[in-house]
C-alpha cells in the first residue's frame, strides 16, 4: 500500500553539473519498497510544478538497527529535476510510494546482468544489494556519454558487482553503446542468466532485441510521462503484446514500470 510522506532531505550529493543523489528520510516507504519500484515526487509546494514526477528508488538507506529511507538518482532536465538538484538538507520532498511492479530478482545459480544507460542506473543500487544478499553473481553493464557521467562505480564494485562499461566518447570502457560489450558477453556466456535493463527507450529496445537474439529474458524498467502513478489517469501507457494477441496499451505505473522486454511493441515508439 502506498503512503504519502513529507520526507526530509538528509543529504544531496551533486555528482556532476547535471546528476545528483538525494537521500530522503522516509522509512515507511523504504521499508515496503522492492527493487524496481518507484515513488511519485513533488519537491515544492504550490502549483509549479503541479504534478508529481516518477523516480525509481535508487538506494535503500540503512543503519545498524533498521531502515532510514531511500535515495533517488536524478538528472537535471526539467522543473522537478532542477528542484531536486538544488535541494538542501532539511528541505522537504513529498513522496508517494512505493508504487509499481518490482523486478523479479533471481537466485543462484542463475546470474543477474544489470544493464544501465545514463540515469537508467536509477533502479539498480537497490537491485544489486538485494541480488548480492541472495548470493546471486551480478554484473553491471553501464553505458554513459563519458567517464565523467559514470557514477557509483566504487559503490557497486565494493559490493562485489562486476562492472563493464561503455562510453560514447570512449573515455571509459568500450566506445559506443552499452550493447557492444553486452552482446560480446552474451556470445560467451554459458550459464543461466536473467537481464535487467533501464535507460532510454531506444536502448531498452536494443537490449531487448539483443537478449532475444541470444535466447535470454530481459526485464526492462520503462519511463513514460506519468500523471498519477496510481492507475488513475491513463497517461503513461505503453504498447504491449501478450499471448500473441494484438498490441494494446497498458499503464506503465501499475502494469510496470518493469516489463518483460519481449512483450513491449518497441516499433510503436514515437519517431525521433
Amino acid at each position: 500500500m502506498p503512503v504519502d510522506v513529507r520526507a526530509r532531505v538528509v543529504a544531496n550529493t551533486r555528482l556532476s553539473p547535471d546528476y545528483n543523489v538525494v537521500a530522503l528520510a522516509a522509512p515507511d516507504i523504504a521499508a515496503g519498497c522492492r527493487p524496481g519500484q518507484f515513488v511519485m515526487v513533488k519537491p515544492g509546494r504550490g502549483h509549479d510544478p503541479l504534478l508529481r514526477r516518477p523516480f525509481s528508488v535508487f538506494e535503500i538507506l540503512r543503519n545498524p538497527s533498521g531502515i532510514d529511507g531511500f535515495s533517488l538518482l536524478s538528472k537535471r532536465i526539467g522543473v522537478t529535476t532542477s528542484l531536486l538538484y538544488d535541494l538542501e538538507p532539511g528541505d522537504v520532498v513529498e513522496c508517494l510510494g512505493p508504487l509499481g511492479r518490482s523486478f523479479d530478482l533471481v537466485d543462484p545459480p542463475r546470474d543477474a546482468w544489470l544493464v544501465a544507460g545514463g540515469v537508467g542506473l536509477a533502479p539498480f543500487a537497490a537491485a544489486a544489494e538485494d541480488l548480492v544478499a541472495r548470493g546471486t553473481r551480478t554484473t553491471l553493464f553501464y553505458g554513459a556519454r563519458s567517464a565523467r557521467e559514470l557514477f557509483y562505480l566504487d559503490w557497486f564494485s565494493s559490493r562485489g558487482v562486476e562492472i563493464v562499461t561503455a562510453t560514447e566518447d570512449g573515455s571509459h570502457g568500450d566506445r559506443g553503446h552499452v550493447t557492444i560489450p553486452l552482446e560480446r558477453a552474451l556470445g560467451r556466456a554459458r550459464g543461466e542468466l536473467t537481464m535487467y535493463a533501464c535507460g532510454p527507450e531506444p536502448m531498452l529496445a536494443a537490449v531487448s532485441a539483443v537478449a532475444a537474439r541470444h535466447g535470454r529474458t530481459c526485464q526492462v524498467s520503462v519511463e513514460r510521462v506519468m500523471g498519477c502513478g496510481m492507475g488513475g489517469c491513463y497517461s503513461c501507457v505503453i504498447p504491449v503484446r501478450e499471448d500473441g494477441g494484438p498490441p494494446h496499451y497498458v499503464r506503465s505505473c501499475i502494469h510496470g514500470p518493469v516489463f518483460d522486454g519481449a512483450s513491449i511493441v518497441w516499433e510503436y515508439r514515437r519517431a525521433g
Binding site: 500523471g227 501507457v237 496499451y249
Partner: peptide
Amino acid sequence: REGHPPERIVETPSGMLNAI
C-alpha cells in the same frame, strides 16, 4: 477502445493538458 498514442499529457502552468 485503445485511446490515443502517447504523449497523452503535458503539464502547463498550474494545470495539465490531456488527450487520453
